[in-house]
Design a protein around this nucleic acid. Structure first.
Length: 1101
RNA sequence: GCCGGAGUGGCGGAAUGGCAGACGCGCACGACUCAAAAUCGUGUCUCGUAAGGGGUGUGGGUUCGACUCCCACCUCCGGCACCA
């Protein structure tokens, strides 16, 4: 009989039809009453990201992901699970819309064409998708649900309209998605439009927002309960950017408050708050008392205008607290808002007599940072309303006060550094001193308030306390603007070589380390001690009343005699060093400063006899110095420059906290400051509007009459019975001149009656972003019957059958997708799920139990595949030439699954050859033909090993080694001369053995496995077979190979009965000729023995 | 800058701290063939005739023994980027 060649074209079509007709891969929904399926099969939900059906067709990267989870799904079915492995189309999106703009073809038509093509291509691969549940996000039956879910967000106040920045292309007159903006080479310049290359502008436009930030905390915390790769969790956590910190209030440039009676005297003393620095002089108590009397009198007898003005300003009616007839310095002002530092004056006749005094007063107020607004009497009397508006406008423009009560809130994660805060910075377009000051609540010092470019509006509270000594960016800013620096945290180092010893006294002192450079040689001065094996810098203590430079200069002279020195710099701040000082027999705690000097010349004076004997003066580099506690810090600073110490350490210059550990003192400091603990997030609310066509219409109506009737009631939800809001057909897909969605031109569609008051209203023309439909699609697969139903969605959700179904299937057991979706899609759908969970619509806090990611496949040239580059690999062509099984196998074999790889077709030959071999052997087995092969027992154990390895490696997604293992096992089937068995026999391959092999091959190469399975005489599908069990090896094999190492190097090996003791093995081994040769005349110093595996002799060389 | 990930033959890549380079591609030689293809077999890190030596980005360390663990550095890739 002539052997048929392996012809994938023939068999693959055949089995694909067979599977489909037998509905082998259709998942079974549970019974509505019991919530279970027949035979009580456990469920398993495998999911791959559904594709965007682009015109380019299927990508080999899709194949990689689909095949991988197909292997998992097929294995799970064989393990007895009721498996759901669905597929659908995420079909809304820009490329289709852009194509429509260009060609005028309706996106719906293009989508149909592309998804048909994708389906055809995927079906060629023999993936075990349940096609009966196919979904398409652009299907009105589908987006009806998407719109309904949006309305639930809207009703809960989580969808709101707000101004947001968009990328605007002034040439195309269109808002661009971030992905459509090409990054410009200069990172500060705006990006360019993907299509026309014009520089993109930032524009503000009202957009619908989804309140994802309300879920930020749970999105972060619940990452703990899901099985995602650590890097995915990390990048989600980074994206959410949860940060625990504290909000600290800084009082702003304190204004004098009216002093209570009798306390005026104390004002002459500088108060503990350091008032002298406040920038104004309080009036003499006597003057103050006089002024107060007058003020009270004026309050009692206001002019008409003053009275009216008070009505305007009192009771917080302008949004902040006004006082009248307030004493500021030696003046009385008419009205003042202290928080905003706004003075309102009403000029009557009296004022005309005292212009000089007014000018003086104006100057005084100006100097002290008050804004003064003046009104004429008449103005106030005649038009109270306009005066009120004017003040309101001025107030709005003033920086502080709004809701702040005269304080500025800053957010920090390092409150313990507050003693080093020497300025305040808040968000601004450019660096600018505001002219205002704040009081550091820890030191009570007056510090300037700046606007700074590097502070961002939306981060924290939009303001920081600047600690130049301990923050890089604050340091840069302070340096640039000459703001002083105050060091408050110093590193603590304990000498590893000479750690403090117990039982010795502890001496604390200030010390210096002098680094003296000789500019001629570039070397530095070192001391070699005569009594101790040390080489040190010039070191010494700082004496009472001495500054560090003097101390260092003195020490250099005393110890080395060099007297002409130039001081260069101190090498950063102090370091606290703890060590045992052997030369003094005491423990030292040393606050050390390093100072850098240069020799002016080499002139020296006589060194005292005592010092002379102590050291030898040598020259070297910093690396020659023996390690001391501080040395690493010096080296680091010499190398990278004196920067900023951002670590923890000991607090200095920190009032009552000086000397404490910075980390440990944090709590006490925030308590003292009454700082509020606050958590902030990087995550922003989700801009949910797109001024586009090809997306889900946002199902809202704007009703002008409702808006008029009640503020904030303009937007009305489309009633559930009117869903879906169908995307109307349009002819022109371009946005309008002012950047509105093309839907704004669909006039008939636009006009609609308000669902609430039935007046004429107008539909929202924005559509939803791409991410909407994919945020709940894993639920849609479970509702494929419901999607077709016209029953109200809320009813459907509460239906028992639906709830049982959702409860049975959710969450997704294994979800595979690309790394590029870890921060957007994955986060968004987790957010939607949590929201739906809160509405008690779906079970479980999380949508996906386990997430894995596949590596991207690049073109052979290492570039991204794209039509324009002409480097796209077409799977159709590969299936045609090599067969789907060979392609599947190769995609699994190409490299580590999670790693990015470049496509290389050469390897496909290998997997095809492998399949041909399987085919040939399979036919021979089927015909009972005799094959040369090793003894049955060996073969069985090799196969057993294969079952084990493949099973484990599938779970670990190590598909490449699965394939390798299958190849190795196949070799065993056909190896006539290989192997360690010298007396191998010729015989037949046991049928069962080969069948087992086919079973574990079947998830990878399902068509071939089915065909051979049939040829072996089976009438049912191999996919219905149980997954082979790993045989537990009961009897240990009769011999083991023991490796013989000499000094850790393999020199020999020996085959011995198992379970011998070290002594037994050792005795046998040293008689081996090769081993004996190595051990000849050597003394065995040590023997390492691992039973049944290894023996290692340590000898002298 | 920060956060991830990775550096191993001509190439894709294997390797619980214990034989580095499994498996595949390519290449060379051989068998079969009139011949070629296909197939099968043998070989294929490097220096050395050999014994043996060297070798997993670089430099240190831990260990009887390091691709594997620790420290420092270099390079490449991906993500984020004034994040307080």
């Amino acid at each position: 009989m002539k052997e048929a060649n392996y012809d994938p074209k023939k068999i693959e079509k055949k089995w694909q039809k067979y599977w489909e007709s037998k509905k082998l891969f259709q998942a079974v929904n549970p019974d509505a009453r019991s919530g279970r399926v027949k035979a009580q099969k456990p469920k398993y939900y495998t999911l791959v990201e559904f594709p965007y059906p682009s015109g380019d067709g299927l990508h080999v990267g899709h194949v990689r992901s689909y095949t991988a989870l197909d292997v998992v799904a097929r294995k799970r079915r064989m393990e007895g699970y009721n498996v759901l492995y669905p597929m659908g189309w995420d079909a809304f999106g820009l490329p289709t819309e852009n194509y429509a703009v260009k060609t005028g073809i309706q996106p719906a038509i293009v989508t149909k064409k592309n998804s048909d093509n994708f389906r055809r291509q995927i079906k060629l691969l023999g993936t075990s998708f349940d096609w009966s549940r196919e979904i398409n996000t652009t299907d009105p039956n589908y987006y009806k649900w998407t719109q309904w879910i949006f309305l639930q967000f809207f009703k809960k106040g989580l969808a709101y309209k707000a101004k947001a920045k968009i990328n605007w292309c002034p040439s195309c007159k269109i808002g661009l998605a971030n992905e459509e903006v090409l990054a410009s080479e200069n990172k500060d310049a705006p990006g360019k439009c993907e299509r026309c290359g014009t520089q993109v502008e930032e524009r503000e436009k009202e957009q619908w927002m989804l309140g994802i930030t309300k879920y930020a905390d749970r999105l972060d915390k619940d990452l703990d309960i899901v099985d995602y790769p650590e890097r995915v969790k990390t990048s989600q956590r980074n994206w959410i950017g949860r940060k625990e910190g504290w909000e600290i209030e800084f009082k702003i440039n304190p204004t004098p408050e009216p002093l209570p009676e009798g306390e005026g005297e104390e004002m002459q003393e500088p108060s503990p708050l350091g008032r002298a620095g406040w920038g104004y002089e309080t009036a003499d108590p006597k003057i103050w008392r006089a002024l107060q009397d007058r003020a009270l009198e004026m309050r009692k007898n206001p002019t008409e205008a003053e009275d009216l003005m008070w009505q305007v300003a009192r009771n917080n009616s302008l949004g902040c607290h006004f006082r009248r007839q307030q004493i500021i310095g030696k003046f009385i002002v008419d009205f003042i808002c202290l928080e905003k530092k706004l003075v309102v004056e009403v000029d009557g006749d009296i004022h005309d007599y005292q212009k000089e005094a007014d000018r003086e007063r104006t100057d005084f107020l100006k100097v002290n940072g008050y804004k003064v607004v003046r009104f004429k009497n008449d103005e106030v009397v005649q038009n109270k309303g306009s005066v009120k508006n004017k003040i309101a406008e001025v107030l709005k423009a003033l920086s502080f006060g709004e809701g702040l009560g005269g304080v500025l809130k800053i957010f920090t994660t390092r409150p313990e550094t507050i003693y080093g805060a020497t300025f305040i910075a808040r968000a601004g377009k450019q660096d600018k001193f505001t002219g205002e000051y704040a009081i550091n609540p820890a030191t009570q010092e007056k510090i300037p308030i700046w606007e700074a470019e590097y502070i961002m509006e939306g981060v924290g509270s939009g303001a920081i306390m600047g600690v130049p000594a301990h923050d890089e960016r604050d340091f840069e800013f302070a340096k640039k603007h000459n703001i002083p620096l105050q060091e408050t945290v110093i590193p603590i180092r304990i000498d590893k070589n000479h750690p403090p010893k117990e039982g010795y006294k502890k001496v604390t002192r200030q010390a210096i380390h002098a680094i003296v450079k000789n500019p001629k040689t570039g070397k530095i001065l070192t001391l070699e001690w005569t009594k101790f094996p040390w080489r040190t810098l010039v070191i010494g203590g700082v004496e009472e009343g001495e500054d560090v430079v003097t101390a260092a200069t003195r020490e250099i002279r005393e110890e080395t005699g060099y007297k002409n020195l130039k001081f260069i710099e101190t090498l950063g701040g102090q370091v606290k060093a703890e060590f045992f000082a052997a030369h003094k027999n005491e423990n030292r705690v040393s606050y050390t400063t390093a100072l850098v000097f240069e020799l002016i010349d080499e002139e020296r004076e006589e060194v005292s006899q005592e010092e002379k004997g102590k050291y030898k003066i040598t020259w070297g580099t910093i690396d020659d110095v023996n390690p001391c506690a501080e040395i690493d810090v010096w080296k680091e600073r010499l190398k990278n420059g004196v920067g900023v110490y951002t670590g923890d350490g000991e607090l200095i210059n920190s009032g009552q906290f000086t000397g404490r550990d910075s980390f440990e003192a944090k709590e006490a400091i925030v308590k003292l400051l009454e700082a509020k603990q606050k958590t902030t997030y990087k995550l922003r609310d989700w801009v949910f509007s797109r001024q586009r066509y090809w997306g889900e219409p946002i199902p809202l109506v704007f009703c002008p009459s409702c808006a008029k009737a009640s503020e904030g009631e303009g937007w009305q939800a489309v009633p559930e019975k009117d869903l879906p809001v169908i995307l109307p057909k349009v002819k022109d897909f371009k946005p309008t001149e002012n950047g509105d969605s093309p839907l704004a031109k669909a006039e008939k569609w636009l006009k609609v009656k308000c669902p609430k008051c039935k007046a004429w209203a107008r539909r929202e023309t924005d559509v939803m972003p791409n991410w909407a439909g994919s945020s709940w699609y894993y639920i849609a697969y479970l509702l494929s019957e419901n999607l077709k139903s016209q029953a109200p969605i809320s009813k459907q959700f509460s239906n028992n059958k639906v709830q049982k179904n959702l409860k049975y299937w959710l969450g997704v057991d294994w979800y595979n997708g690309g790394m590029e979706h870890t921060t957007l899609h994955l986060l968004y759908s987790r957010f939607w799920h949590k929201f739906l969970y809160d509405q008690k619509l779906v079970p479980g806090k999380e949508p996906y139990r386990k997430r894995t990611s596949h590596g991207f496949i690049l073109a052979p040239d290492g570039q991204k595949m794209s039509k324009s580059r002409g480097n796209v690999i077409n799977p159709d062509d590969l299936v045609n030439r090599f067969g789907a099984d060979a392609l599947r196998l190769y995609e699994m074999f190409i490299g580590p699954f999670e790693q990015m790889v470049s496509w290389n077709e050469d390897g496909l030959v290998g997997t095809r050859r492998f399949l041909e071999k399987v085919w040939r052997i399979g036919l021979k087995v089927a015909q009972g033909e005799t094959l040369k092969m090793p003894q049955g027992l060996t073969l069985a154990s090799i196969l057993n090993e294969c079952v084990k390895k493949v099973g484990e490696d599938i779970e670990a997604m190590k598909f490449n080694t699965c394939v390798s293992e299958l190849m190795i096992t196949l070799k065993a089937f056909e190896a006539p001369t290989q192997g360690r068995d010298p007396d191998q026999s010729v015989g037949t391959i046991p049928l069962k053995t080969f069948e087992t092999f086919l079973k574990i091959l079947s998830p990878f190469a399902p068509h071939l496995a089915e065909e051979l399975w049939q040829k072996l005489g089976h009438k049912t599908s191999i996919t219905l077979e149980p997954w082979p069990k790993v045989q537990v090896v009961k009897k240990a094999s009769s011999e083991v190979k023991i490796m013989i190492q000499i000094n850790g190097k393999v020199r020999d090996e020996i085959v011995l009965p198992p379970s011998l003791t070290q002594a037994e093995v050792s005795n046998l081994v040293i008689k081996q000729p090769l081993t004996a040769k190595w051990l000849k005349e050597k003394e065995i110093k040590k023997t390492i023995f691992i039973p049944n595996r290894l023996i290692n002799f340590v000898i002298d060389n």
